[in-house]
Amino acid sequence: MASTTFKIWRGERGQGAFTDYATEVTEGMVVLDAVHQIQASEAGDLAVRWNCKAGKCGSCSAEINGRPKLMCMTRMDELPAGEAVTIEPMRAFPHVRDLVTDVSWNYEVKKKIKKFTPRPPDAPDGTWRMAQADVDRVQEFRKCIECYLCQDVCHVLRDHHKHDEFIGPRFLVYAAALEMHPLDTEDRLRDLKDNHSIGYCNITKCCTSACPEHITITDNAIIPLKERVVDEFYDPVVKLVRLLRGKK
C-alpha cells in the first residue's frame, strides 16, 4: 500500500517543530503502528507513551490532525486518504519530549478528592447488597481509562490554565462516581464548589465528545453534580425539605 507522510511534533520542554517522516501504511493499521514503524526505522529516540495498544490503558493520547485521540485506536483508514497526518502531544499539560507530556498534575488532583468511605456492611459476613440498577451509572463512570483527553480539550484548562483551581472533567467524573456510589457516605459537595471550582464548567460538552470510552461526562456526571451543589448551597426550600426527610 501507499506511503504516507506523518508530521510529528519533535522537541523538548515546549520547544519543537514538526518533522516529516514517510512510512508505508498497510491494511487495518492504526496511527500508533505508524509511529512505531518510524521509531524502528529512522527515529529511534522518538518519544511516545503507550502500553496496551488496545484502547484500555489510556497512555497513548495525542492530537491527531488537531483532534484529541488515542493513537492506538485511530485507524489510518478513518483519516483522509492521501493527505499528510499530523501528530502532536496534548497541549493542556507541560511538554516533556516529542509526543510525551507531563500528566503528573492529574495524579495530584486525584489525591485531593476525598476517598471512598463505605457505610457499615449490610450483612453479618461483612458484605453489602446493591442492585445492578443502582450501580449502572457508577459503572459507566468507572469505565474511565484516565487518558486525560477530556482534560486536554477543556478550555478551562487548555486555554485559561486554571489547573490550580479547577479539577477538570476527568475528576468531576471521578467525584461523581464516588458521590453516586450507593455505599459511599462522604460529602464532597462543598469541596466541589469551593476547592474544585465546578462552577467554571460552562457545559460546552467538548469533554464528552473527546472521551474514547463514550462516557457522557457532561450530562451524566457534571450536570447532576452541579444540581446537587445548587441544592445544597443555594436552594433553601430544597434544603429544608431534605432536612425534614432526613436525607444527606
Binding site: Q39, G44, D45, A47, V48, D98
Partner: peptide, 11 residues
C-alpha cells in the same frame, strides 16, 4: 542508541 537520555525509547 542515538539521542540523549531523556525519554529515549531506543535506549
Amino acid at each position: 542508541v542515538h539521542g540523549n537520555r531523556e525519554y529515549n525509547p531506543g535506549w
